[in-house]
Design a protein around this nucleic acid. Structure first.
Length: 661
RNA sequence: GCCCGGGUAGCUCAGUCGGUAGAGCAGCUCACUCGUAAUGAGCAGGUCAGGAGUUCAAAUCUCCUCUCGGGCUCCA
């Protein structure tokens, strides 16, 4: 008896009935057989030992594909759980999915024990034994009640099974995590007897695993809920080969070298004095210089784009935040209050209420709209100590914040103009890969449906106009506003959230804002909140990591270093310095009091874009030797005037041009 | 806030079995004046995060506090 299956390329293949996926793969090619870890049969992921049926569409999943790695990682997570339950009998094991680059597994050790870092070594050793034991993963299906018996004593597994059982009543719901087909569960059993609740698929033998490494132990709440028990999570990484694993570890090292906290220290840009308090950075001269270049540039472009500047204080009386509603719904994110002369003051967590007061300082006419207020506004937010992370997550941050007040019919064009402005500005900082997210009305929210629809469709219009790729995040909006969040990808592919753009449906009402329209009626303006960098501090961190500290010339605190070969070249070197200063560049003079090689090394470590070396030949010929960043091949005898001409386009950020409506 | 791991010179780190502290880099001084990523010598630098306890004796062992890192939750 033969059956026929359809392969991924559309070709048909006849195989004996009873043939498994694995046999098919080996029949197609020896290497494919060896590299296969699972298959998609009629669109569903299945194990290698699945018996093929007549007419099945089969796509073999190999270990070096994204889906193949997921299978490897998931299977490695099972081996981890098996190793832990071997070493700590009676451990409760919870869930162990594959994640980007690896996997984790959550455990609750008996008697309140906790893993230490040393345990990782022991666990990893046990895992390697299990791998060598050539244990098979065998799938079987059970009813809910059988499942409850099978996992008696495993509270987390029982909870998952119960969830599955409840979903049987509501078949609409997609099943979670490890639960399987509605109404029944599937279980994988290793040859040692270890069982785990799992949807699969898995590799057929532990011998197919091995290129893995346990990375760290962390705490994690059961089902992500901080009111549920805290489990011990072990993170690991796993790959299709030792080579791929090694490459991943090298990438991690590279990422670590780009860590903005490390670069900030090395380049003397900023630090976090414990005397000031967690999450409160101080910027050293070079860091402050970079910041001010960013801010000056931003201000210039905002002015050109029709923004007016505002300046507002850092604290305000509680009444302001009562009106704005912050004390109602954002209090947990605010610094504690201060009492003074019978009034209660709070550091501001956002700038919007103060900008609204500027709007409200007088009657507004439709002729003034859109009114675009802009401020580098420093706000203070209480972030729990565990979440602080360098400049990317701080307690005092400066937003490049703006609030735009416009009439309803201006909303769509204003949003679209704004989004183009944001993307152009991000591009001049050398960031070019963006994705946007349109976050729509959440369940818990205020306002009328028609308002939400109007605002959301205006946001969507702006997204379409700008051409940016976007996804819709249903129900992820703020409770008072739908929003667009712009994410960007940095040089090594990490995603960061930067800009945010929100249409506020609440504040104009809370503050009873209005304007007089052309028909002499009073109307309520629309209000857009928007931050472009997000926070200057975070954006600074992103730039440092994106460029690994080697900022573009226009942002570099020192753009050119001038090094005389000997002391007696100092006079000419000084002329060079002065000439460069006249061309508006930032120059450092490095006197010949230590060897040239040593000074060059220092300048290279400081990531100075251009190192100019001047010696006898240069004094004679009015030239410079140019050692550019990123090159180890210096150029000799470049006329000074030519060098200045060459770098002048790099000295200032590119203007955005007109952002027209 | 919670779980795990750290905190020794400005930075990176060593410090064995409990016996009062060590290196490299950076800094300072002197010499060297040099053509593209480390010239040499010398000097200085420490309440071993802080406090309490155990001990004849604590960087080292115990407890508490602070703080930093990795996660969870949260978020610009």
């Amino acid at each position: 008896m033969e059956i026929s299956v359809v392969l991924a390329d559309g070709s048909e293949r006849k195989v004996p009935s009873g043939f498994t996926v694995s046999q098919l793969a080996t029949m197609i090619g020896k290497k494919l057989g060896a590299d296969s870890v699972a298959a998609k049969i009629n669109g569903i992921l299945r194990d290698l030992d699945t018996v093929l049926g007549n007419g099945d569409q089969v796509q073999i999943i190999t270990r070096n594909s994204d889906q193949g790695r997921e299978v490897l990682r998931h299977s490695t997570a099972h081996v981890l759980a098996q190793a832990v339950t071997d070493l700590w009998p009676n451990t409760h094991y919870a869930i162990g999915p594959s994640i980007a680059d690896g996997f984790y597994y959550d455990f609750e050790l008996p008697d309140g024990q906790h893993f230490s870092d040393d345990d990782l070594t022991r666990i990893e050793a046990r895992m390697r034994e299990i791998v060598r034991e050539d244990q098979t993963f065998a799938r079987s299906e059970y009813s809910i009640s059988e499942g409850l018996d099978l996992f008696a004593g495993q509270p987390f597994k029982l909870e998952i099974i119960e969830t599955v059982a409840n979903q049987a009543a509501e078949p609409e719901e997609e099943d979670l995590n490890e639960g399987v087909e509605v109404g029944s569960i599937s279980v994988y059993r290793n040859s040692s007897g270890f069982i785990d609740l799992c949807r699969g698929p898995h590799v057929s033998s532990t011998l197919m695993l091995g290129s893995f490494k346990l990375m760290r132990v962390a705490g994690a709440y059961w089902r992500g809920n901080e009111r549920r028990p805290q489990l011990q999570r072990i993170y690991g990484t796993a790959w299709e080969s030792d080579k791929a694993l090694k490459e991943h570890l090298v990438r991690l090292e590279e990422a670590e070298k780009r860590d903005h906290r490390r670069i900030g220290l090395e380049l003397d840009l900023f630090h976090f004095p414990p005397e000031i308090g967690g999450g409160l950075p101080v910027f050293h001269p070079k860091g402050a210089l970079i910041r001010s270049i960013m801010e000056d540039y931003s201000k210039r472009e905002h002015r050109k784009a029709g923004y007016e500047f505002a300046w507002t204080p850092h604290i305000a009386k509680s009444t302001l935040f009562e009106i704005s509603g912050h004390l109602g719904w954002y209090k947990a994110g605010m610094y504690p209050p201060m009492e003074m002369e019978g009034a209660t003051y709070y550091p501001k967590p956002m700038n919007c209420p103060m900008h609204i007061l500027i709007y409200k300082s007088k009657g507004r006419s439709y002729k003034e709209l859109p009114l675009r207020l802009f401020e580098f506004g420093t706000v203070y937010r209480f972030e729990r100590s565990g979440v602080l992370h360098g400049l990317a997550r701080v307690r005092g941050l400066t937003q490049d914040d703006s609030h735009i007040f416009c009439s309803p019919d201006q909303l769509a064009s204003e949003l679209s103009r704004l989004l183009r402005f944001i993307l152009s500005m991000l591009k001049t900082f050398g960031l070019s890969e963006f994705e946007a997210e349109l976050a729509t009305r959440p369940e818990k929210s205020v306002g009328e449906d028609y308002e939400w629809e109007y605002a959301t469709s205006a946001l969507e219009y702006a997204l379409k106009e700008s051409g940016i790729a976007y996804t819709v995040a249903n129900g992820e909006g703020a409770f008072y506003a739908p929003k667009i969040d712009v994410h960007l990808k940095d040089a090594i592919g990490r995603r960061w959230q930067v800009s945010t753009l929100q249409v506020d449906l609440q504040m104009p009402q809370r503050f009873d804002m209005e304007f007089v329209d052309s028909d002499n009626t009073r109307k309520r303006p629309y209000m857009i909140h928007r931050a472009l960098f997000g926070s200057v501090e975070r954006f600074f961190a992103i730039l440092l990591e994106h460029y690994a500290g080697a900022l573009p010339v226009w942002l570099s605190p020192v753009q050119v270093a001038v090094l005389p070969v000997r002391d007696d070249h100092g006079e000419y070197a000084n002329d060079v310095v002065n000439e460069l200063k006249r061309s508006d560049s930032r120059v450092d003079y490095m006197a010949a009091d230590e060897p040239l090689g040593s000074r060059i090394r220092k300048a290279k470590i400081e990531k100075v874009p251009y190192i100019l070396v001047v010696g006898d030949a240069d004094v004679a010929g009015k030239t410079v030797g140019v050692n550019a960043r990123g090159s180890n091949d210096p150029e000799r005898g470049v006329p000074l005037a030519e060098f200045i001409k060459r770098i002048s386009p790099e000295l200032n950020g590119q203007p955005l041009g007109d952002i027209v409506d």
